[in-house]
Design a protein around this nucleic acid. Sequence first.
DNA 1: ACTGATATCTTTACGGTGTAAAGATCATAG
DNA 2: CTATGATCTTTACACCGTAAAGATATCAGT
Lengths: 259, 259
Amino acid sequence: MIVKQNLYSVKIATYNGRMARLSKENKATRPAQTPKRRVARAATVRPAPRRRTNDTPYHHGDLHEALLKAAERVLERDGLAGLTLRAVAREAGVSHAAPTHHFGDLTGLLSELAAIGFRQFGQAMAAADASAATPPEKGVASAKAYVAYAQAHPGMYGLMFRSERLDHARPSLHEASEASFAGLTRGVGASRHEEISKEQLTLDQAAAIASAWSLVHGFTMLLLDGRLKTILDRAPEGTSAETLLTAMLGRSASKQPRP
Amino acid sequence: MIVKQNLYSVKIATYNGRMARLSKENKATRPAQTPKRRVARAATVRPAPRRRTNDTPYHHGDLHEALLKAAERVLERDGLAGLTLRAVAREAGVSHAAPTHHFGDLTGLLSELAAIGFRQFGQAMAAADASAATPPEKGVASAKAYVAYAQAHPGMYGLMFRSERLDHARPSLHEASEASFAGLTRGVGASRHEEISKEQLTLDQAAAIASAWSLVHGFTMLLLDGRLKTILDRAPEGTSAETLLTAMLGRSASKQPRP
DNA sequence: ACTGATATCTTTACGGTGTAAAGATCATAG
DNA sequence: CTATGATCTTTACACCGTAAAGATATCAGT
């Protein structure tokens, strides 16, 4: 932390003109420029301002995408608490206000990043579903993939389900989140050996879906928060989170639809 | 928000000396004083500095407790995002650095407040448990009390289970949290018609406890985040969160211990 | 009863954050 | 070749947590 602050101080100290960033990456894409402003078109070097002619619009070349990638790196490196607008801008090598023009505010950036997470998340669960043969196996595999994704990407999972600064009304986030939810619904329907309508649910179907989601989501949250240690410590020797989850799923599996 | 900023500006503007706070409460406990510093023991008014002789120590009279009460008000009024050290200090009518001497830092204050929440939470569940007759009814009542507490105190529940700035190693928080967990364990044991040891759990017992906790915790989180609306909207007409929860509990209830 | 020590609270200061507003730069349309 | 608008930077402000120093009140020891 102190190192970080010192680094930042150095950056500030050497940041008199412009283009004196510290980020080792993302610098080759923009040429160095003289600090002087109003020399107009004099004989300054001006090294070929990257004419791309196509699909990479203006100054930076898709800063929108670069910011999202930077945000993902920051999230994995520094966690949810370190995921700030200014940190992302630093990581991308632009001024701290640049993200504003692409995402509006912090909520915008976080929501777009969470949408990416939901897409990854949905794909992981779909892959697990496809890799299993029978419906009950598919359900167990999907549930394990759910927890595995959260364990592999705790920062992203926290952003998706813990952050209070998401705007679920944003189309991209809403769509991605609904898609992963639809996968869950489909899995529950398959394990019940019935088709589940998109518009109407019976109470028992709704309860089955909500139970599956609540169980796996609650388990994941408690696990990531370290709150299951109390249980794991008292379980038989060598009980891991996965064996516990397997036992839990065994208890609640093979629920048939009720009349 | 603008109103709040204006209020704060006004406070700063009129805050030349001291004791010119805006908080309408918590002022009568401390007498007004002249801004002058070094007049020593002159003939200033000095209105009876509240000699209590007992159990209310120094200047303020248990500022520790007053800060916790202020924090609870702020949390209920402004939510988790508004629960800052400085906001709590303002609410209590003291300088922004005063809480430091009682709680160390923000984590300390939040952890102590969360401990209070866990005690309330545990009491609510214990009361529900006591109000029901048979073991399965006790389990359902406890689960409903769990969700009801979270709905009645969403800010506190978020602090307890969502905040990343809690120190669960703090004795008061650890103890309160463990106590509410013990209540859960006891309820699960009762509904299984067996005694659950404090030190050792079978895998099936661990799975039963983890399932119950995960189910109700996941349901609560999804409900508070508004994510269950997708399900409730497609459920039969008039399905509320409580009816959905009841249906869920009916599906997973009456689990007997397995060999 | 005085005086020093100590706990309590306030002031001041600093670096961090999000965000608004204005200035500078650049690609493109006309 | 200029005007326009998009993109990015600079500057500014309010707020945050926290550290450090100053002021004040209580208490202990003589």
